[in-house]
């Protein structure tokens, strides 16, 4: 080994050490609070671990997962979670519509954009408490408006929905079992949460992403379309929509991931998971299992099922996403 190679090696080594020093604070925290816990919770999901220590710790293998798969509670809460995600396509379509409008040369675009972003920026406990009051069946402004409208239209027999206290839903899903029950037809707590979610999300980050996407579309594509005599609708269909496909794809995937994990704060603040468990989502169920019943093992298993679903979706994103990107 010549002196030059030795020096180069030493330099590389010292560069690595310096890089390590830069990385260390973050990496340490990352290992302790993120990576470690991920591994740890995977291990915990194969045990009967209970924080109360009345039960001896045991390795139970796939027991927790098998129990979950057979548990009707888990199925129902899964359906609840999926149901609450029905608002996502509406919210995404709304964002797209707004983005198309806002990307025109109009006056006050910045003001509107700022305004629309407000709900998602301030979203949190305070807004959930606000919506609880808005949904009050008697004095809440939503029902006051609805009742005035009904009276005005002469529909005196129609009653306004009772929102957060009702188990009803437009799909007439039964409360307890996976099936349908006609008397459940109507609007209820889950729909109230969906509507609130749409209100929050329409003007949020998705709108900004669409705006960025639209501004990146090459102008000559539109000019070419105009040469062919395309109208506004046809330009949207043949230029804007396909050009925005990667953005849409990204938004759909992120919303899906967010939706699967969602519903905890709403349930805790607005409904305590009720009525009759209809607003209990998987994340709220995990909270109840882990922090109220202290069945850490079981709760970890639920969390991991969530993770597996999310992981699968992300993999699909990588597999098929590129196809859209290279459109």
């Amino acid at each position: 080994m010549g002196p030059r190679r030795g020096r180069a090696l030493r330099r590389r080594l010292s560069a690595t050490i310096i890089a390590g020093a830069f990385l260390l604070p973050n990496f340490l925290g990352f290992v302790i609070f993120t990576f470690g816990p991920v591994v740890f919770s995977l291990a915990a999901s194969f045990t009967n671990w209970n924080l109360m220590k009345t039960v001896p710790l045991q390795w139970v293998g796939l027991d927790n997962f098998l129990k979950l798969m057979q548990s009707p509670d888990f199925h129902r809460y899964f359906v609840n979670t999926a149901y609450l995600m029905l608002g996502l396509p509406v919210a995404i379509a709304g964002s797209l519509l707004l983005a198309v409008i806002l990307s025109q040369p109009l006056r006050g675009v910045v003001v509107y954009r700022t305004l629309f972003y407000l709900p998602s920026f301030t979203s949190g406990v305070a807004l959930f408490i606000l919506w609880k009051a808005l949904y009050n069946p008697e004095f809440g402004p939503i029902n006051q408006v609805l009742e005035t409208l009904f009276d005005w239209a002469g529909l005196t027999s129609v009653k306004a929905p009772t929102w957060l206290t009702s188990t009803q839903n437009p799909l007439a899903l039964a409360v307890e079992y996976a099936g349908f029950s006609p008397d459940q037809f109507g609007l209820g707590a889950r729909d109230a949460i969906i509507i609130m979610g749409i209100w929050t999300a329409v003007g949020g980050g998705n709108l900004l992403l669409y705006l960025a996407g639209i501004s990146n579309i090459p102008q000559d594509l539109y000019e070419a379309a105009e040469m062919d005599g395309a109208g506004a609708c046809s330009k949207f269909r043949h230029v804007t929509w396909p050009q925005l496909a990667p953005t849409t794809f990204f938004i759909v995937v992120m919303s899906f991931i967010g939706g699967l994990q969602g519903g905890f704060e709403q349930a805790r603040v607005m409904t305590l998971g009720g009525p009759a468990g209809t607003t209990t989502t998987l994340s709220y169920y995990i909270y109840v299992k882990a922090f109220e019943e202290f069945q850490i093992g079981y709760a970890s298993a639920i969390a991991w099922i969530l993770f597996i679903i999310i992981f699968a979706v992300t993999l699909l994103n990588w597999r098929f996403g590129s196809r859209y990107v290279n459109y």
């Binding site: 408490i129 609880k132 009051a133 949904y135 009050n136 069946p137 008697e138 004095f139 809440g140 009772t162 929102w163 957060l164 206290t165 707590a189 603040v269 607005m270 409904t271 305590l272 009720g274 009525p275 607003t279």
Partner: peptide, 10 residues
């Protein structure tokens, strides 16, 4: 719920 103010379940 209507009578007791904020109108959430519970």
């Amino acid at each position: 719920a209507a009578m007791s103010g904020s109108g959430g379940w519970g």
